[in-house]
Amino acid sequence: MTWRKRFLRIPHIWFLALLLIQLLPDAKEGDYYPVYVIGSAVILELFYLLVSLFSRKKETISETGKLLSVVEILVLLWVLFGPKLDRLNAKMFPAPGIVFHQFIEDTQPLLAAVWISFRTILEGFLLALVIAVPMGLILGWFKAVRSTASYVVRFVSAIPPIVYIPYAIALFPSMNAAKVFIIFVASYWPILSGTMTGVVNIDRGILDSARALGVGHLSMLLHVILPGALPYIFNGMNQGLGISFILLTSAEMIAADPTNPGLGFYIWNYSNFANYKRVIPAIIVLGITICLISFVIKKIQDLLLRWRAPV
């Protein structure tokens, strides 16, 4: 790649614009922490320069650039309509510098909240996975129970799991257990039904081939049916995970537990105090956390299902 192709790119203009916009006078007196905006812009720019310098593929550079452009344009508009023109409600949308500053101030409690939410999801989700997959394999495999089970699953999974929140709070000794249970229920049904669908959809020919080999029951389950159903199991897992994220934040808001404040509680709590400069960082962190978890699951999925894509 030529020097020009690497470094002569549009996102650098947004970076410069972010610096230059600080030269405009603020609409109202006040400390808007412009240093934090400049600092964030510099960090993004440095990151982009590193990618431009070391990336081997042109696509990586341009994709990263487009993504950074979106962020930079958003911040640019935020600065422009916030402190510079005073068109945004300063209470609901505090200036980006103020938010970024608060972000840094609150790193400690934010990370603690992320960890608590993450642990709740992980516990509920893994529990669901460990129980739903074997059950789905068995229910899907035995014809006698398959159709009855699929009616039950269809009925139960049609119920929005949010209705279980009051029950869970009443039934479980601790809020934490209630939340784990809700995540468990939310992800259990999609994983179970995904697994059953997966088993039913395994090619008859492949099952015949396994039978003809004289494969034993356990090996049939572990080496044939489980991997055969895996694509659908991942579908169920992704669905379950999506619902879990929604439910976790709801559960944390409803089952408010100040001793164990997850991200949902954190957002809820500061919203109640109209402390939006602390709400916005939490929302951003929540988004990033969910993206990261989904990314990790996607990577695991690609690895375990690599046999599906001809190379």
Partner: peptide, 9 residues
Amino acid sequence: FQNYSLFPW
């Protein structure tokens, strides 16, 4: 078999 003798995974 003609097809499907092998396990794709």
